[in-house]
Design a protein around this nucleic acid. Structure first.
Lengths: 188, 188, 188, 188
DNA sequence: CATGAATGAGCCTTCATTCAT
DNA sequence: AATGAATGAAGGCTCATTCAT
């Protein structure tokens, strides 16, 4: 009755599925549960059991990335310089978004389907909001801008970087440049 | 060079197709050539003859919007204040992008399939580049930024506005705010 | 714009589909549009174009049978003896139901999906109702019974005949016996 | 011959499974062993061990209802008036069939898979046959009709009642009316 | 005995594209 | 040029049944 001890082989399967999905996502391939099943050498239904919808799988793929960002945000909150803390966090966030498309996809989506993702997303918003507030507190950021705007802007920057360049290398460079533009735009 | 006299009824058909497609695009419906044909009361093959691929049709839909932007850019080049000229143009561009999704789609795509679109796109890039150069010339814009960056950024802003809001009204508001941030970020 | 001249080859296809479906229905096989397509040597989508749902196809299969019954009911209304007219009609109806399962399926269904079927069904109900009224008029049928009851009862008799026997021959015999029971039960 | 002592927990499981299945059947939901397992908080395999096929489970669901009918038939055989005994029994039977769909399903099926069901079914047929014979003995029932016909007819009446009405209330009313028609039809 | 994860065949449905009329 | 019927690959999803734990 206690929700789930989780069997070892089931966990292995689940992980294989997520791994395969990650590879597909990284390649920009749209997630098709049938393909995932084939590549993971599982039955389709196994994929469906673990992830009832493509969105759920996408969120599972994004999970570790989101966790890492949460961890980084927490560390950033302990830094001395609020502006440094903010820009450092945004820099890491951007790199994550450009490296792992699932992050932008999940964060740009109107809603989350897994409780865990919702939780992570909320935590991230809360922490990032604090980072922004602290920076505003020392006058480093305009009064009118909220995290509610910065989140879409970060997704927009990732989008722009993808529009501008196809290869990973250039994409990161452009992204950083665009982030620079935005940061200057945000300054008080 | 003008490939053929074009029969009047053919032209009428073509127009009906584009009109229908515009409506679908504006509603956010994915362009399906069969649907378009049915709504335009044409055979599918007619749609295919005029527009061999969905992309071609999308570009045809974007055409008038792009022409309007070219016209605006030309007028802007005659304005006195280079900064005003630039911001005015970008403001109109943003509104166009948020009003007519085909514009962002076409401009964010890696390549164009219709010669006419290529032409318009190139003209727009050239004119916008000049507007940017003029603004840079009077020190209103950072030296390092080129139109090659501003175009993706505009698409990113449109994307951000869509992430932030679902209704047209709010979308425009957010978009303008984000454009403000970018412009401040671009300033010398 | 006038609804449909119907192409000859299209009509041929449609007929092949209905023919295949009829065979399946007669064999008691559940109608699966993919199977129908394969057996009719058509693409699946062709079947879907003609019959958007299995129900629509089923009704198309039942069509001729219903038409024949309507014709019979019309003739019956011209007969002298109201009781003979009624029993003759019910006998033919039963035979139709036991010969062609689609008839019972369509008539026992809560609603019809094709306008044509609705039309036929309504016509049949109206004519049968008149036959019943006439029989009641000469005191051959109890006052309390309406066609609204006799229709379900006919379906019930067909069901009973199927329960009782598997082979066509015996099924018809039993069905007639059961019809006899019902008719006696209906008599004033 | 009683195959095994049967562990208490196993019996509990079995009962939970049957209870869940009964609920599903009563709701008109098709019996899916996976669903049953989930709702009964059992593993699927447990369901399969107790009931190798959906039919077996269906018969188990019908069991108590059949037993009750057998009991009623036995009591009926002791009644004075053979016609009253018969009609009373058929009335109770009809109500059971309309209340608990599993009864009609099992009795209309060409064969039984559980020995217990076979036994009950045979007993019921035998008893009902005697009730019918007694009624025929006093001239209350036509000579030509056998229980072999009445059983299908009862299933047909249940079918007709379902065709005629969707809600339980009306279904019972119609069923009783149809039973009345049949009884009149059977009378000598 | 019990569990529930895994399986994969199989059905339904859509859509871009071709081709006979 | 125009028509729209036909195609069939492809994707989504379910469910009866098996099997490792």
């Amino acid at each position: 009755m206690t929700s789930a001890p989780i069997r070892k082989d089931a966990a292995r399967n689940r992980q294989r599925i997520v791994d395969v999905a990650r590879k597909l996502v990284d390649d920009g391939t749209p997630l098709q549960l049938n393909d995932v099943a084939r590549l993971a050498k599982t039955g389709v239904a196994t994929v469906y059991r673990h992830f009832p919808t493509p969105e759920a799988l996408m969120e599972a793929v994004a999970g570790p990335g989101l966790e890492a960002l949460v961890a980084h945000a927490e560390r950033a909150l302990t830094e001395e310089d609020p502006w440094q803390a903010l820009t450092g966090f945004l820099d890491v966030t951007l790199e994550a978004q450009l490296t792992d498309p699932s992050i932008t996809i999940v964060r740009a989506a109107p809603d989350r389907v897994l409780p865990r993702t919702e939780e992570l997303s909320a935590a991230l918003d809360s922490l990032a909001g604090q980072l922004l507030d602290r920076a505003r507190g020392v006058g480093a950021v305009r009064g009118s801008v909220t995290w509610d705007d910065v989140l879409p802007l970060m997704c927009g920057i990732a989008f722009a970087a993808n529009v501008h360049a196809a290869d990973q290398q250039t994409r990161l460079q452009s992204g950083r440049r665009y982030l620079g533009v935005m940061l200057k735009g945000l300054q008080g």
